[in-house]
């Protein structure tokens, strides 16, 4: 991180916290007082961060409305400094913030929707990575399949929630059409976020598929992950899960682990 010299960091402090700068910076201006000048900077600073959050959390904005969202981001910006020169890194704390945000307590699903939107945002900006090489996989002898360690693509995220967040997210996309009725008590949902051809995808996974993927994400070998998933979910269908996840570009590569 680049450290600013004292004068500039003093000005930055003034902008962030709305205090008058104490340093030697020439703040004299014929038309504006120092306080008003700082307010102009301060407004731009907050406006930029607000626009950034609108870009990352369009579903949250639709769910609570523009005015409420402006209030929410104002509080968020007051509590969370931008810690990177790259604004794409700003806003990670939104899910935790919303969970503790008193005026939004009635919307119990809001924190999980925020977590899903952050995952989509991260997926969009994640590094490129190769897709699973099927030809390379074809060279692995079947007796070694249980030792396969599948590597997850950097754009892939799994967001698990007690609420139907996948349906909520899809209902607030531009492409959404028709009458939506979402039953908030319709049970948990496992949102799979991935990126294919530069487009971020959000798809719903069954409990069994999500449990298996979580195990694979943790670096568990294919044999063990599948066996333990089948133990808890006898209906788990590895074939269907693999086809679906490969089509969603969830895996980037694989290695072979030791036989336990």
């Amino acid at each position: 991180m680049i450290l600013l010299n004292n004068d500039l960091s003093d000005l930055a402090q003034a902008i962030v916290h709305g205090k008058a700068p104490s340093s030697q910076i020439d703040t004299s201006n014929q038309n504006y007082s120092v306080a008003i000048g700082i307010e102009v900077y301060r407004n731009n600073y907050r406006g930029n961060l607000h626009d950034t959050l609108v870009g990352v959390y369009p579903v949250i904005e639709q769910l609570v409305g523009k005015d409420f969202f402006r209030l929410l981001t104002r509080r968020f910006i007051g509590q969370n400094l931008s810690r990177s020169g790259n604004l794409d890194h700003y806003g990670a704390e939104m899910a935790d913030f919303v969970a503790a945000f008193e005026p939004a307590q009635e919307l119990a699903y809001l924190p999980d929707v925020a977590a899903l939107e952050w995952a989509c945002h991260c997926a969009y900006f994640a590094d490129d990575a190769a897709s699973l090489d099927i030809d390379k996989l074809a060279q692995i002898p079947p007796e070694q399949y249980p030792n396969l360690i599948l590597h997850i693509h950097p754009a892939c995220h799994l967001v698990r929630s007690r609420y139907p967040i996948t349906a909520i997210w899809h209902a607030h996309q531009l492409s959404a059409s028709g009458d939506f009725h979402i039953d908030l008590d319709s049970g948990s949902s496992n949102a799979l976020v991935s990126r294919k051809n530069d487009v971020v995808l959000v798809d719903k996974l069954t409990e069994a598929d999500a449990a298996w993927l979580q195990s694979i994400q943790a670096g568990t070998q294919l044999g063990e992950a599948t066996a333990s998933t089948l133990e808890h979910y006898p209906d788990f269908n590895l074939q269907a899960a693999l086809l679906k996840l490969v089509a969603q570009n969830v895996f980037e590569n694989f290695t072979l682990g030791e036989t336990p």
Partner: peptide, 25 residues
């Protein structure tokens, strides 16, 4: 378990599923 893995990966190989995201960029 071994047969399940073989069948599942076998179907993946048979279909020749290729998703090529990085090339698109």
């Amino acid at each position: 378990n071994r047969q399940i893995l073989s069948a599942a990966i076998g179907s993946l190989l048979a279909l020749g599923v290729v998703s090529n995201a990085s090339a698109a960029g």
